[in-house]
Amino acid sequence: MKVFQCNSCDYQSISNKYVCPKCLKGKLEELEVPSTGTVYSFTDIHVAPSEFADIAPYTVALVQLDEAKGKVTVRVNEPVQIGDKVELENVEKGAYLYKKI
């Protein structure tokens, strides 16, 4: 899992930014971290837009990565609760697909 770490403060994001939005001066640098994490929060999407209607209901979770400050939004292949341990299973059409450990 790739995250971006500011070189002058503790800001970290899953996506790159031109300038660090926290200290407004640092540049973000790529950092490789393990994909394992903990469910920070989640929802089950019962009413989906047309492009996801065929897989509804499905679970989307915000995952706090274990070894990074950053969080990542993922789809999980089964219902979860806050605090569940999860890891990356696959990357499909630009989405991180996670599973419970």
Binding site: I14, I45, V47, P49, A95
Partner: peptide
């Protein structure tokens, strides 16, 4: 719902995961 999704950052792993507007506030609520 599809048209409202134009108000999200559609070029992101978050959108590709299937997050929607009511989905965002569902995650917040939990």
């Amino acid at each position: 719902t599809q048209a409202i999704n134009a108000a999200m950052d559609n070029d992101s792993n978050e959108k590709h995961a299937g997050l929607t507007f009511p989905g965002f506030f569902g995650v917040l609520a939990n």
